[in-house]
């Protein structure tokens, strides 16, 4: 950490049920408005389906339902953040995404020990800038393919 302490980290900030979350900008391909989503049958409950992202069929995850927060109808401010991880490209549905922040890496603190919700597993740290507190997401955990398979209902 000490070596990279000078380096800035660019973060995309988005909202979920009033809380602020962050993803490194390097992992974000683009931010889209919600468009027609084609449901994919017998997939996990948080996989909302696939969209046509400029000719590429891209799966979409609802982050609210991924984190066990009650879902809400999409509004004008609802956004789809397209993230890439290794060879995967996935869209995340969030309440709103409207900020980019430069932070020093020392502003990132490890996640607090006791957090009772499901989302605790997907947190890689907490970013504190002034009075704002943002949760840095661990994308690898969010997109963990094993979990997708495990919760996938297979039937005949």
């Amino acid at each position: 950490m000490s070596e990279t302490s000078v380096a800035d980290l660019k973060l995309i900030i988005f909202q979920l049920k009033g809380k602020e979350y962050a993803i490194p900008v390097s992992k974000v391909r683009s931010i889209e408005k919600v468009q027609h989503i084609t449901r994919v049958p017998s997939s996990s409950h948080f996989v909302k389906g696939v969209i046509n992202l400029r000719g590429v069929v891209t799966p979409i995850i609802d982050l609210r339902s991924r984190f066990g927060i009650e879902e809400e109808a999409y509004s004008d401010s609802t956004r789809v953040i397209i993230v890439t991880l290794e060879d995967m490209e996935v869209g995340l549905i969030v309440d709103a995404a409207n900020d980019v922040l430069d932070v020093q890496t020392e502003a990132i603190e490890p996640q607090p020990e006791v957090v009772g919700t499901e989302e605790a597993n997907y947190i890689s740290g907490v970013v504190k800038v002034g009075k704002r507190l943002m949760i840095l997401l661990d994308l690898e955990m969010v997109l963990n393919p094993e979990e997708v398979k495990a919760t996938q209902g297979i039937e005949g």
């Binding site: 994919v40 049958p41 996989v47 389906g49 696939v50 069929v57 995967m88 490209e89 393919p145 996938q152």
Partner: peptide, 22 residues
């Protein structure tokens, strides 16, 4: 369907229709 959704039952892939939907 990409690398995230693998082995979806009874679905071999997707296509994009004339109206832009999948």
């Amino acid at each position: 369907l990409g690398n995230y959704l693998t082995n979806v039952f009874a679905i071999s892939g997707a296509t994009i229709l004339g109206d832009g939907q999948v």
